[in-house]
Design a protein around this nucleic acid. Sequence first.
DNA 1: GCCAACGTTGGC
DNA 2: GCCAACGTTGGC
Length: 138
Amino acid sequence: MAYWLFKSEPDAWSWDQQKAKGEAGQQWDGVRNYQARNNMRAMAVGDRGFFYHSNEGKAVVGIVEVCATAHRDTTTDDERWECVDVKAVEDMPKPVSLDDIKANPKLSEMVLVKNSRLSVQPVGEAEWAEVCRMGGLR
DNA sequence: GCCAACGTTGGC
DNA sequence: GCCAACGTTGGC
């Protein structure tokens, strides 16, 4: 299983909204960036991802699971754009802020730190475990 | 609200 | 195919 990070501005799509969707999940639409799209194409059902609030909050606030592989993004007629569906799994008991991540040497190679503009990014297994630990999971 | 960094577009 | 101009993102 692979790990990912999904970024969203809480004004546009928040963790609370994601949780309200429950098991049905929600398509991760609106991505108009090739790198982000390619990452979504590489996802499999069951992959886990961090739900990150950008701009306001700037923290990992929850865990999502991929519940459908990449398909056409129905919010555009442009067939280049695809997206996966994700569903909320659990809250971060303690949100892990961007400051916390930057302050941790083990996470200095995270895409979030190196290329903050990429909205859907891969997360390494060790990075995943470390952020979970910081967030109070396991 | 500003601006640096980055990605995309389009003229040549 | 290059690169300048432009638009957008997101941290500060």
